[in-house]
């Protein structure tokens, strides 16, 4: 049995009330979307909170709608809703795919998009019980001074295992953030890629008083193809060991640019620009070169379970397969 420690609960139904609660709580309150990350982490003594702020009732966080050239998704949508929504499947199929591959059916019914983007970082030390961790003493993220993943390391390199983050970064998504200040709601919007920091102990650049309200993704035109691919040991339940998204911008039948977004390396997704590949035909050798780029520029660490060297060898394979799936018939013909 893993009992939760004592805490209070607030269940606002308006955004202003939620933001006020956060502002009033002096960092003791934690937003709770589905709780599928927060509650296990609190049970394991990895996260502490004085109050759980249930976001479920907050209407402003729900809904998926077309706003001009963008699709807007409220942070409170469940991953099941995101995966099944017709507009998302049409306009942002790689996001629908990423959402459909998170965890298990039950968790997708509970988990929210906001929670998936603000997911805590994970490593094979920190995601153990408090009792287990005591054997090695604390680490940079838990009242200690050394990292057990990179001995002697100066920073926490725990991995962001979010599946939707790489996909949404590939769509050039921005996130809408709100807080309660000076007796009013203050909002700001930042590119999703800039939400993340390289320090695994505070990798989400949000103040404790801020809430993620929604995500805005420009709907790509016909000259853009985006895909997502995940590898985990089991097809279900498991966190990703590789989660990659590829954005290909085309000029006619040739590549014009785009980006490769590689997740689960460290605390933030790695974004690789593909301008250098402009002019390449959508053929198998291009897919291989994209895989090689990932191999050269990314170095999976022994932060998440599984052999890091194997993950490194596997990454270019996943990238190549993802690229080929986006090339479609063109690659098959050449």
């Amino acid at each position: 049995m893993l009992r939760l420690p004592v805490f209070d609960v607030a269940a606002p139904d308006k955004l202003t009330d939620a933001l006020r609660s956060l502002a009033d709580s002096q960092a003791g309150a934690r937003p709770l979307g589905g709780g599928t990350d927060l509650l296990p982490n609190v049970k394991l003594g990895q996260t502490r909170m004085a109050m759980a702020l249930l976001l479920r009732g907050v209407g402003e966080l729900r809904g998926i709608e077309r706003r001009g050239d963008n699709l807007w998704l409220g942070a409170g949508n469940t991953l099941a809703q995101v995966a099944q929504d017709e507009q998302v499947r049409d306009a942002l199929p790689a996001l629908a795919h990423a959402a459909s591959r998170v965890a298990s059916p039950q968790i997708r019914n509970m988990a929210t998009l906001g929670g998936n983007l603000c997911l805590d970082t994970r490593c094979r030390y920190i995601n153990q019980s408090e009792f287990w961790r005591q054997a090695l003493g604390g680490c940079l993220k838990s009242h200690g001074s050394e990292c057990h993943v990179v001995p002697g390391g100066q920073g926490c390199v725990a991995a962001l295992s979010s599946d939707t983050a790489p996909a949404l970064i590939a769509y050039d998504a921005t996130v809408e953030i709100a807080s309660w200040r000076d007796e009013g709601v203050q909002t700001r919007e930042v590119p999703l890629a800039e939400l993340y920091d390289s320090d695994g102990t505070r990798h989400v650049r949000l103040e404790s008083t801020e809430l993620l309200v929604g995500v805005r993704a420009p709907v790509p035109g016909l000259n853009v193809r985006v895909g997502h691919r995940k590898w985990a040991v089991r097809k279900s339940i498991d966190f990703p060991l590789i989660s990659v998204a590829l954005r290909l911008e085309l000029d006619g039948a040739l590549a014009a640019g785009g980006k490769l977004v590689v997740g689960v390396l460290g605390p933030r997704p790695r974004v690789l620009d593909l301008k250098a590949f402009a002019g390449r035909a959508l053929a198998p050798d291009f897919a291989r070169d994209l895989g090689q780029l990932a191999f050269d520029r990314c170095r999976p660490l022994p932060n998440v379970p599984y052999d890091a060297e194997y993950r490194r060898e596997r990454l270019p394979v996943e990238v190549r397969r993802l690229a080929l799936s986006l090339f479609g018939d063109q690659a098959a013909q050449s």
């Binding site: 609960v9 709780g35 509650l39 296990p40 759980a52 059916p105 039950q106 968790i107 019914n109 509970m110």
Partner: peptide
């Protein structure tokens, strides 16, 4: 279907 062990 919902996991009641991590639902408040």
């Amino acid at each position: 279907p919902t996991l009641s062990c991590i639902t408040l």
